[in-house]
Simulated assay, not measured.
Amino acid sequence: MKKWILLIAISLTLSCGQLITPEPAIVKRSPTPTSAVTTIPTATSRPTATPKPATPAPTPTPTMTPTPIIYEVQSGDTLLGIAIEFGVSAEAIQTANGIIDPRRIQIGQPLFIPEPAEDDAQPTLTPTPVPVIVRGVSFQKTPQGTLWCFGEMMNPGSVTLSELVVEVNLYDAQGSLLASEAAFTQLDILASNQSVPFAVLFEEPPSTFAQYQVRAISATPLLGKPRYYLELRPIETSATFIGESTYRVSGQLENIGEHNAEAIKLVVTAYNEANEVLAQRQASLDVVVLRSGARTPFALDITAPEGTVARYVVQAQALRAP
């Protein structure tokens, strides 16, 4: 009897030993998704508890910092064209890069493109609703094989305009477009009942064209309190023929306003008897600051290869010095 009791006890002891050290349960994991979510590893389960899937910790969404856009100016670029391409205003690019004259950006010049503002509407190259008049159009071929289209934009309204852009289209006899170019006017702003000249260059013009279209594609009312300064008066002007269709226009520029002027630009425009623009020349004066009441001399050479110059006009524009 004792022998059977001993065998039963040994049997029970062996059975209890198997329960103390069970084989660990194998937990099958789902395939790891290919994403940025990080999952916390499953903790080792205890023998007396059923393991539960671990809840992944929420991964914070990183804040994306916009990469600065630097654009390198290419041949034929204009500030307005670059602004249209990136969906920002030309004024925003001009301000961000400290550009005084938007027509004088250089090939290879790096431009920082700012983030579009909420109120930045991408401009559309359609005829502007602002009433402007394009007149005095003429075409001048050069010995280098290029073609200039000259003319002027006139503002019959009561509001001063800015961001003035002219487009010239050349067509054949059937009305098919042969070439198209656009450019800013020679001065940045256009006051009421005044005109500013423009010059549009075709570097590779068609050998001939039968008809053309010249239109203003941008003319925006000047808002806010800009630094543009127009209280400049050309005086004692004269024109001297110096040969080979070239005239030298000289005189004095007087600051008749209350403020000092800087970044002065001067434009000379030559007309024929029919008031067509034959030639024009723009230059920046060497004087750094023209004080109120002061004068500075100027002299510009202007060439009109075709036609006879009947009259000329001198215009000036500057920025109000701080």
Rank of each mutant, 00 (worst) to 15 (best):
S250Y: 00
I235W: 04
R233D: 07
G243K: 08
R233N: 11
I256S: 09
R227C: 07
Y247E: 05
E273V: 14
P226A: 12
E273N: 14
T246A: 01
V249K: 01
L278F: 01
A274V: 07
I217N: 03
F241C: 06
G251D: 07
K265M: 09
Q252S: 09
Q282Y: 03
T246V: 05
A263D: 08
H259Q: 14
T237L: 06
H259P: 05
Q280N: 15
Q280I: 08
A261D: 07
A270N: 09
G224P: 04
Q282C: 03
T240A: 13
A279N: 10
L230A: 09
S245L: 05
E244Y: 12
Q282L: 06
Y247W: 15
V249C: 11
A283R: 07
Y247M: 05
N255P: 10
Y228T: 11
A239R: 07
T246P: 05
A263C: 08
L232P: 05
A274C: 03
V267F: 01
V277Y: 01
Y229R: 01
V268Y: 01
S238T: 11
Y247H: 13
I242M: 04
G243Y: 11
E231M: 11
I264E: 00
V268E: 02
I264L: 04
R281K: 15
A261K: 01
G224Y: 06
T237V: 10
N260I: 05
I264Y: 02
G251V: 05
Q282E: 05
V267Y: 01
Y271W: 12
Q282K: 10
I256E: 05
R248E: 10
H259D: 13
L232V: 06
E244S: 12
T220E: 10
I235C: 04
E254A: 09
N272Q: 07
V277A: 09
V249N: 00
T220W: 02
R227W: 06
Y228S: 09
Y247S: 10
P226E: 06
A261M: 05
E276R: 12
Q252H: 10
R281Y: 03
S250C: 03
T269M: 04
E273T: 14
E254C: 08
L232I: 08
E258R: 12
R227H: 12
A274R: 11
Y247L: 15
E276I: 03
T220K: 10
Y247F: 13
T269F: 06
V249R: 03
Q280V: 06
E262L: 11
A283D: 12
